[in-house]
């Protein structure tokens, strides 16, 4: 069902959906529509500063009219990602009476529904604990230890302590490795900084052979060198992207509950997603920790998250069209050739 009233394509003229995409509700819908990518809203909240629950619905109603519904040409690579069939799959329910480990189960169920149609699930909104539900659903479909989790974050999320809970916002990756959902060496982290991890956690991370690209490395070696390292580590692998918006610099993405200065720039984030989309088979992605209650009137963080998703989609479509160089640029857009 297409929510857009007019052919021209104006985001403010239809019913609000993710990227202005048509809607789907079941696995059968996705199969019937041969949907490539299903955007699914997550409203689970697990943050010290509440508000991520509202991220998904805000992403359908951004203060934004400069994007086309479910399509548009990426002006880095000249690819129209509107050739992909994209759908809004609605939201995963969040039982706010329940302990969040039960809510992660519902994330698992809905992601599994999307995967059953051989559609790429892209989670929008919510909080980082949901990643565990993505990883269990992916491990069930593709097998444990068969895929890489590319984790963009200011924080390492393999916290040693659960304080009673096994899977929470800071520990889910530790449990995922302990349970064998992913291998430690298949966790690739980008953007770590701030006051963590402590030495005990760092030791555990080294024992697991986790590949962590700290901001320290980006500052010392330069972004281009680190990007090439990341792409080399990912080459030939199925990739699940777990994107915490606080991995970005707060100047670009202020609306997160756990700000840490000196993160990835908007350009670095957009390039990383485009490059990985071109180079790798993307099996799932999720963009979380957006707190619209902390955003500005122009929904700056929300619009960046929207464009990050669009950049990934452009990479996915470029790969379909036969582009193989992850650092490809459209020659038409590199010079003002007359």
């Amino acid at each position: 069902m297409n929510p857009q009233r007019y052919k021209f394509g104006e985001l403010l003229a239809g019913f609000p959906t993710f990227l202005g995409a048509p809607m789907a509700f079941t696995t059968e819908d996705l199969k019937a529509g041969k949907v490539d990518v299903a955007l699914v809203g997550i409203s689970i909240g697990d943050q010290p500063v509440p508000g991520g629950n509202f991220g998904a619905n805000k992403m359908r109603a951004l203060t934004d009219w400069l994007a086309f519904p479910a399509g548009g040409t990426n002006n880095m690579i000249g690819v129209d990602y509107g050739k992909l069939t994209i759908a809004d799959y609605g939201n995963v329910g969040w039982n706010f009476f329940a302990q969040n480990q039960r809510n992660v189960e519902e994330v698992h169920r809905v992601v599994a529904e999307i995967l059953a149609a051989d559609t790429i699930p892209i989670g929008v909104g919510g909080t980082h604990v949901q990643t565990y539900g993505f990883q269990t659903a992916l491990a069930q479909k593709y097998g444990p230890g068969t895929f890489v989790t590319l984790h963009i974050d200011a924080h390492y999320d393999t916290y040693m302590y659960g304080f009673g809970r096994f899977v929470h916002n800071g520990s889910f990756l530790k449990v995922a490795i302990e349970k064998g959902l992913i291998n430690g060496s298949d966790l690739i982290q980008v953007g770590l900084r701030g006051e963590y991890p402590d030495n005990a956690s760092l030791q555990w991370m080294r024992e697991q052979k986790i590949k962590s690209h700290y901001m320290a490395a980006i500052e010392k070696k330069g972004w281009n060198a680190v990007l090439k390292e990341i792409l080399k580590e990912l080459k030939g692998r199925k990739v699940h992207i777990s994107w915490d918006m606080d991995g970005m610099d707060p100047a670009a993405a202020p609306a997160v509950g756990t700000q840490d200065p000196d993160g990835l720039s908007a350009a670095q984030g957009l390039q990383l997603l485009r490059a990985v989309g071109i180079q790798n088979e993307i099996i799932a992605a999720e963009f979380n920790e957006y707190n619209p209650l902390l955003d500005d009137a122009h929904t700056t963080t929300g619009i960046l998250m929207d464009r990050l998703i669009r950049s990934l989609l452009a990479g996915v479509q470029a790969r379909k069209e036969g582009i193989t160089d992850p650092l490809y640029y459209d020659p038409e857009r590199l010079d003002h050739v007359q």
């Binding site: 480990q101 698992h108 009673g164």
Partner: peptide, 28 residues
């Protein structure tokens, strides 16, 4: 079709109404 028990350490298969807590539950 929830998360399989072997990947859900908070579940007790013998007591489906119980959510298990870790030993460090009082540490905070």
């Amino acid at each position: 079709a929830g998360i399989p028990d072997e990947w859900a350490p908070w579940k007790d298969p013998n007591n489906p109404n119980v959510i298990i807590l870790q030993d460090d539950k009082d540490k905070f």
